[in-house]
Amino acid sequence: MSTDELYGMPEPTAPPRRNGELAFDEPWESAVFGVTLGLCERGNIRFEDFQRRLVEEITAWERGPRNREWSYWTHWLAALERELAARNLLGSAEIDAKVSQILHSYTHAEPHGTHEH
């Protein structure tokens, strides 16, 4: 996926931004974004297919009960998981294990700014 494609993503699939820059609140969010771009660049998944799944995820959330918290990147992750499973790149158990591993590594990492360079 090119930068032009990313910047041209229609709402509601456009990633959140602050001051024109992509906005990530947690380290795992930027990691899942990077993984997705890497898979697209290598041709493992097509961005158009991923984007369709992202729209489906967001639409399902919008149609659901309103007491659920909004998280763009959670929808992004769910869309990626569905695309990987649909392409048989990873089975659902493997996806769950990888996601748990990634989330665990980020939740048990040193707080930002506490390590020395």
Rank of each mutant, 00 (worst) to 15 (best):
residue 98 K to D: 05
residue 90 L to T: 01
residue 90 L to N: 02
residue 77 L to C: 07
residue 103 L to G: 05
residue 51 Q to W: 00
residue 114 T to G: 13
residue 44 N to W: 12
residue 23 A to V: 00
residue 12 P to S: 00
residue 44 N to K: 07
residue 93 A to C: 13
residue 78 A to V: 02
residue 4 D to V: 08
residue 60 A to D: 13
residue 95 I to F: 09
residue 2 S to T: 12
residue 115 H to Q: 15
residue 7 Y to P: 05
residue 79 A to H: 10
residue 23 A to Q: 10
residue 113 G to R: 10
residue 116 E to H: 12
residue 55 V to C: 10
residue 3 T to N: 08
residue 37 L to W: 02
residue 64 G to F: 01
residue 25 D to K: 09
residue 44 N to I: 06
residue 19 N to P: 06
residue 103 L to I: 11
residue 35 V to M: 15
residue 80 L to K: 02
residue 53 R to P: 01
residue 43 G to L: 05
residue 28 W to R: 12
residue 43 G to V: 01
residue 2 S to W: 06
residue 55 V to F: 13
residue 75 H to Q: 14
residue 48 E to P: 01
residue 53 R to H: 08
residue 115 H to G: 09
residue 58 I to W: 07
residue 81 E to V: 08
residue 101 Q to T: 09
residue 98 K to H: 05
residue 52 R to M: 14
residue 58 I to P: 03
residue 23 A to W: 03
residue 99 V to M: 07
residue 15 P to R: 06
residue 1 M to S: 04
residue 66 R to V: 03
residue 30 S to N: 12
residue 35 V to F: 02
residue 27 P to A: 05
residue 20 G to T: 04
residue 41 E to P: 00
residue 71 S to E: 14
residue 74 T to S: 07
residue 65 P to A: 02
residue 20 G to S: 08
residue 67 N to Y: 10
residue 95 I to W: 03
residue 29 E to G: 03
residue 70 W to K: 08
residue 34 G to L: 07
residue 32 V to Y: 12
residue 32 V to K: 04
residue 105 S to K: 15
residue 40 C to Y: 01
residue 57 E to M: 15
residue 107 T to M: 12
residue 77 L to P: 12
residue 112 H to M: 09
residue 89 L to K: 13
residue 53 R to E: 05
residue 62 E to F: 04
residue 29 E to N: 02
residue 24 F to G: 10
residue 69 E to V: 00
residue 48 E to Y: 03
residue 51 Q to A: 12
residue 87 R to D: 11
residue 105 S to N: 14
residue 90 L to P: 00
residue 63 R to W: 15
residue 87 R to M: 13
residue 46 R to I: 04
residue 72 Y to R: 00
residue 30 S to D: 14
residue 23 A to P: 10
residue 76 W to Q: 05
residue 79 A to Q: 14
residue 113 G to Y: 08
residue 111 P to T: 08
residue 16 P to K: 00
residue 72 Y to I: 01
residue 11 E to P: 12
residue 113 G to K: 06
residue 28 W to Q: 12
residue 24 F to Q: 07
residue 61 W to D: 13
residue 65 P to G: 01
residue 110 E to R: 08
residue 40 C to G: 08
residue 97 A to I: 09
residue 10 P to T: 07
residue 31 A to W: 05
residue 39 L to F: 13
residue 72 Y to G: 04
residue 14 A to I: 06
residue 55 V to S: 15
residue 101 Q to M: 04
residue 71 S to D: 15
residue 14 A to S: 14
residue 92 S to C: 03
residue 114 T to M: 01
residue 103 L to H: 13
residue 84 L to I: 09
residue 14 A to K: 10
residue 109 A to G: 06
residue 34 G to S: 15
residue 29 E to F: 01
residue 28 W to F: 09
residue 39 L to K: 14
residue 106 Y to D: 02
residue 34 G to Q: 10
residue 19 N to G: 02
residue 101 Q to V: 09
residue 18 R to I: 02
residue 101 Q to W: 12
residue 60 A to L: 05
residue 15 P to D: 07
residue 104 H to A: 11
residue 76 W to D: 13
residue 42 R to Q: 14
residue 54 L to A: 14
residue 9 M to N: 06
